[in-house]
Design a protein around this nucleic acid. Sequence first.
DNA 1: TTACATGCAAAGTATTTGCTTCGCT
DNA 2: AGCGAAGCAAATACTTTGCATGTAA
Lengths: 126, 126
Amino acid sequence: MRQTKQKLMIIDAIHKMDGHPSAEEIYLSLKPDNPQLSLATVYRNLNEFCERGLLRKVEIPNEPVRFDKHLNTHFHGVCERCKKIINIPARKEKSLQDCIGMVKEMEVTRYNLLIYGICNECRDQE
Amino acid sequence: MRQTKQKLMIIDAIHKMDGHPSAEEIYLSLKPDNPQLSLATVYRNLNEFCERGLLRKVEIPNEPVRFDKHLNTHFHGVCERCKKIINIPARKEKSLQDCIGMVKEMEVTRYNLLIYGICNECRDQE
DNA sequence: TTACATGCAAAGTATTTGCTTCGCT
DNA sequence: AGCGAAGCAAATACTTTGCATGTAA
């Protein structure tokens, strides 16, 4: 992976931004100071970072892909109102495996759990 | 909901087809005998059936939405090789709630779990 | 120097929407 | 008859790709 100023600014942006930005949000945060930056470059680099394990993708149906700089095990909550993503710690004592049990229908490689709900901020605004 | 021959043939097709067809697969299965059928009509009706609880959507990132005629509680497995969807029964004695525990970050409304792996058929083909 | 990365525009995929016409009820 | 539904094409949203040019090593 060749080092470019685009890669550096993208990684830097993600680490400065709160939460789980989308490719476009990262692009828009950088665009004012880097008018020639291309959205395609942002997408290409984010995907490469994910492949290399520097970032994690958060894929939510009907939403643009978000990127998560936290690599430890946790679940993702999605606020149905504001669409914000919330990191939800996994319990150490109980794993998803335990809950699902033996799956004889396939050889399981990974789980992807999304928890939908209303975040505390949206809740308070009612 | 007005009864039309399109609605009838779509519902009929899903119940005759195995597995979890996409809108386009349903459309293509009906098109030969119904050349004037529109894909938009298939999408509109499938969405309406889901809203009314007659079908369930299976949403998988980077895949077209599939439709499931089984309404009982179960999880969905996705074969990473052939992209087939497999119904995986939920265990009665342990719920996902138990496993995830209290979520203080949000008010949870629902969970969406996808189990990724290699299905038995693809496994046997190795 | 040379191969990989970028920028731009165009293409791609899945799905929805606007509008006219059709056909249930 | 009247209004919801269908058909068609165009629009949409997000993301990827082709290709010429730029630039890190």
